[in-house]
Design a protein around this nucleic acid. Structure first.
Lengths: 159, 159
DNA sequence: GCTTTCTTACTCGGATACCTACTGTCCGAGTGGAATAGG
DNA sequence: CCTATTCCACTCGGACAGTAGGTATCCGAGTAAGAAAGC
């Protein structure tokens, strides 16, 4: 089991976009975001596409275009970001192997209630999701000192 | 994010081995276990190897050999099984991208405390692990009727 | 000086290769039991 | 009849391909700003 690298990238990007947003703020180009973290711009673009499709960011085309958060940072949870990048499917997928082999000729109604193992795996996944949903993008930067944030923002100030 | 199919197989196998164990019970060959669930025997063998390395099962070589649980089923948690198959590594791995890009020339001591995003991802993973560790192999079969278990055991009775 | 048009540079978006890791398979080493030959 | 030996069938174990999904890259469509020309 492994979560893709894109999740880390997307989360950092969302936090950065949150720091940069304000009155009359302009969208931030994907290449600029990539430069901020030393990431390959082309591939980060793919993740930004996913965030946009999920309604987390908005993409603005054309000159002076770029990306910005689609809604307030305190309404975007880490779960939203993870789901946007990793996809909606569950991590564990029951293939109902209990029905194969020696039980393949059994009537389907004997398997009416879900497989216990699948239930347990699902419960664990729900716990994981709940934990991620408890934190928003706005929460994440809370522990970072204002000076560090200001220094970061200054890097993106118009020349 | 996705958990390998082997986890489902390993869990079912452990439950089955639990049902089959008893006074003077003989080890169950891997091919027999595979047949019970209609799985490819060769590949299931790979998972059984992992379970054995993790100390969950014991492998007995030679004629009348096979696999059996290494310890009481109520001391084997689902977390143990998942860790044995998926490996010990964390699902989320922080690559510290905050240090790259515009911050690459900053002194290391500015990043002394861990990245907030990594902390959140880790917390979620701990919740997942806790949930899995709360259920043992012995618990899983509890909801299954004795008749179904007896029927399954009979399939493995000596000819 | 103002408006309209055109050019241009910059942006995202999807289509296209690459590569790791999971999935699947095979054959050899080792072991225990059973048959057999000898005492 | 009992015992030691040999053989053999059965088991696991690690080494070897195949494939799906994540990683990385590129080039084209679209847009808005700005320059330039006309009124």
């Amino acid at each position: 089991m492994r979560v893709g690298e894109g999740v880390e990238w997307a989360a950092h990007v969302c936090v950065l976009l949150h720091w940069l947003e304000g009155e009359g703020s302009t969208p931030v180009p994907g290449a600029r975001l990539a430069g901020a973290f030393g990431l390959p711009a082309a591939y980060l673009g793919k993740q930004l596409q996913a965030l946009t499709k999920a309604g987390i960011t908005i993409s603005v085309p054309g000159k002076n275009g770029g990306f910005k958060l689609a809604r307030p940072a305190d309404t975007i949870t880490m779960m939203d970001v993870v789901a946007a990048i990793e996809g909606p499917g569950d991590a564990f997928r029951c293939t109902e192997i209990r029905r194969h082999g020696i039980n393949q000729s059994r009537p389907a109604r004997e398997f009416a209630q879900p497989c216990d193992i699948a239930v347990i795996m699902r419960q664990a996944e729900v716990a994981w999701r709940r934990s991620l949903a408890a934190t928003t993008i706005a929460d994440i930067g809370a522990g970072v000192s204002d000076r560090v944030i200001q220094r970061t923002v200054r890097h993106f100030a118009p020349d």
